[in-house]
Each structure stands twice: as structure tokens, then as C-alpha cells.
Amino acid sequence: MKTAAIVVAGGRGDRMKASIPKQFMLLQQREIFVRSVEIFHGSDLIDKVVLVMHPDWMEVAGRILNKYGIDSVNIIPGGETRQESVYRGLCSIENEGFETVLIHDAARPLFSAFQIPDLLKMVENRLGVVVVEPLSDTVYITDSGSVVEIPDRTKLRAAETPQVFRYQDIFAAHRKAIGENLTSFTDDASLLLNYAGKIITLDSITRNIKITGPQDLEIAELLLKAKQK
């Protein structure tokens, strides 16, 4: 099964309030996006890694990867939205015969590569697999500040990445969305569901947090240190 991984790092990371995009910030002396790339680059099950990067930072990203001896990653320019960036990543491998694709946010560098085999075993035609985490907090559904419903949290999961699909399924869904001018999907699983696909989940074995602000970076540092003990 020929498999590609698309790592999306096209944002500017404005919420981090730093002089560089958040994916270039260091997490225990290694850039966040490098840690995410290494998850897949180091796997025998991944045949190709595509890094979707903001156009202004592609050259810098290439130099950094070369510094670490990672010279087989394709770096392509991202779009205005995450959806567009993923689509560009999918287009870049359109004619290379990939059967399966993992789509991952570079801002989640703590995902465990040990789960890649399980994800690939679970994916089927029209069936995507999403890494999730159970919610420990009670969740309110509100309207104008008032609580209108309290869903059963045992049935709730926080969607994360990677999200894994048959390449032709997710590529076709992206093309349909563009044709219908639907451009606001925030993840690929919801996009596939919109076109009659099905999604199943796999609980993450790590705290697979998304780094969006300074506090998240501090938490990630602590999680990495605990993992290394």
C-alpha cells in the first residue's frame, strides 16, 4: 500500500505573538514543524512526505530540514486557508499512484508514530480514520450566553490529526468542495462526511495537543520531558 503523509504548516501562527511562525519555534531545541515531519519521515510505512509551508518560509524550512539530514521531503506553497493548503498537498502527488494519505497539522508534534500501523490497518474505501482524545470536561451548548443542552461527554471526542484516507476519496471530496464553492472546512474528516463518507476514530496514546499559543508550548515542553524520563 503506497502511502504519503501531508504535513500542513502553512499558517503564520499569529496567536503565538512571536516574530516567526509558530511552526519554527523550538520545542526542546528542535523546530516544531521538524518534529512533526520526523514522525512520518522516520516511518518505514510512509513512502513520501509533503510539507505544505507558507510561501515566504519555504526556503528557510528547506535549509532547516537539510541541517537535520532530512533531504527527501517535498516542500510546496500553502494556500490562504487550511483547506486550500491540504488540497495543494493532494494535488502535488496526484499522478504518483498513492493509495493512502495521512494528513497532519505541523502544530501537533507529539503524535506517536507507533500508531501509524493501526491507522493504516483501519482505513478503507469511503472510510476515514481520525485520531481523537476523549473529553474530560463537561461541555455546554449555548445560545446567547444561555445553556440550552449538555451533551453526554462519554460520547464526545476532540478531533485531532493525523486523519487518514484513501487518496482518491479525500482528493475527490476536496475537488467537489471547490466546485461547490465550499471553502470553510476546518478538517478533512468533516469534508469527507459531507460527501457521504464515513469516519471512525482511534484514541491517541499520547497527549496530542495542538500548539497555538505560548501556554501550549510550555505544556508540550513538560510532556516531552516527562516522556524522556
Results as ranks from 00 to 15, higher is better:
T100R: 11
H104Y: 08
D105P: 06
A106M: 03
A106S: 14
A106Y: 05
A106L: 02
A107E: 14
A107T: 10
R108G: 01
P109S: 07
P109F: 10
F111W: 00
F111V: 11
A113I: 07
F114I: 13
Q115H: 05
P117V: 06
D118I: 12
L119Y: 12
L120Y: 07
L120E: 07
K121D: 15
K121E: 15
M122E: 11
M122T: 00
M122W: 06
V123I: 05
E124L: 06
N125A: 01
N125C: 03
N125H: 13
R126K: 15
L127Q: 07
G128E: 04
V129T: 12
V129P: 07
V130P: 01
V131E: 01
P134K: 11
P134L: 08
P134F: 08
S136F: 09
S136C: 06
D137N: 13
D137E: 14
V139N: 08
I141E: 10
T142E: 14
D143N: 13
S146M: 13
V147I: 15
E149K: 09
E149A: 15
I150R: 13
P151Q: 14
D152C: 01
D152N: 11
D152Y: 00
T154G: 09
T154P: 01
K155A: 11
K155H: 15
R157P: 04
E160L: 15
E160H: 14
E160Y: 10
T161P: 07
T161E: 04
P162T: 11
P162V: 01
V164F: 01
V164Y: 05
V164A: 03
R166P: 07
Y167M: 08
D169L: 02
I170R: 04
F171L: 13
F171V: 04
A172E: 09
A173T: 09
A173L: 07
H174S: 14
R175N: 12
K176G: 02
K176M: 14
A177D: 11
A177M: 12
A177H: 10
I178A: 10
N181I: 06
T183W: 15
